[in-house]
Write a protein that binds this DNA or RNA. Sequence first.
DNA 1: TTATTAGTCTATTAAATTAGTAGAGTAATT
DNA 2: AATTACTCTACTAATTTAATAGACTAATAA
Lengths: 136, 136
Amino acid sequence: MLSKKTQYALKALGMLAGSYGNGPVLISAIAEGKNIPIKFLEIILLDLKRVGILDSKKGKGGGYYLLQHPKKTNLATVIRQIGGPIALIPCVSLNFYEKCEDCDEATCGVNKVMAQTRDATLKILEKRTLADLIDG
Amino acid sequence: MLSKKTQYALKALGMLAGSYGNGPVLISAIAEGKNIPIKFLEIILLDLKRVGILDSKKGKGGGYYLLQHPKKTNLATVIRQIGGPIALIPCVSLNFYEKCEDCDEATCGVNKVMAQTRDATLKILEKRTLADLIDG
DNA sequence: TTATTAGTCTATTAAATTAGTAGAGTAATT
DNA sequence: AATTACTCTACTAATTTAATAGACTAATAA
């Protein structure tokens, strides 16, 4: 399961993808539109800005906006940067790998199956982009 | 990520699959063989017994064993019964569905992508069985 | 029938993670 | 100068996770 934080991030990005090109969107507009607690959303949007997906403008007419065209950012990247590993176990993670203390990874059956699962998941998440999050 | 509990369950089942047909295996043998805290493992094996995957014998010559041939139990079932949902968000889960309060599921972009991801994951996990967990 | 083996059950706990809140501060615009 | 709106630090409550302790029960064999 994705954390609530990651789910909110995806919903917020879907909204920003939908209004890409129309200037900044208010935090409050996203919070209301997507039913996200506003103070929690602030943290999430700051994170998304820090990792280079969003940028923001202060003052009147301010808000958040996508730094790149929605199709340029894939969902695997977003999930990893906000929510962490996509793999189901650490010893099979490409970006958050941790050595398995309990087994020999070369022969471990669990490892093998989980690597296959990771590949199947990534095949989807690496192809889908923020543009796919737009409602409609 | 799967919980440690689910990971331990899969490892234990892999060992039991490997010795299927050779009679019961001691909890302590599984704990040592797979590096699992024994008291935690007891809880896990009891759970697996309750859901009908394992059975056990008490007393000398006792232990745990698979109730069915390893190929009869697929991994999606195990993960769901021990670890919960496989889907990344509740509104897309087949077995642990929860209505999304924040959107119209029919038009939600996040929902659509997550359903695709779930399908890709299930395609693997429903085909793989306990037999695939055997080390080698 | 007693000793031994080995699974069962109840309860508790420590640590980590998650989800959310409060409030003061800073920057941009008009 | 006033207003708007993002930024930052700090905190807290709730939940989940990962165990641990110890008493109990059932089966087997000498």
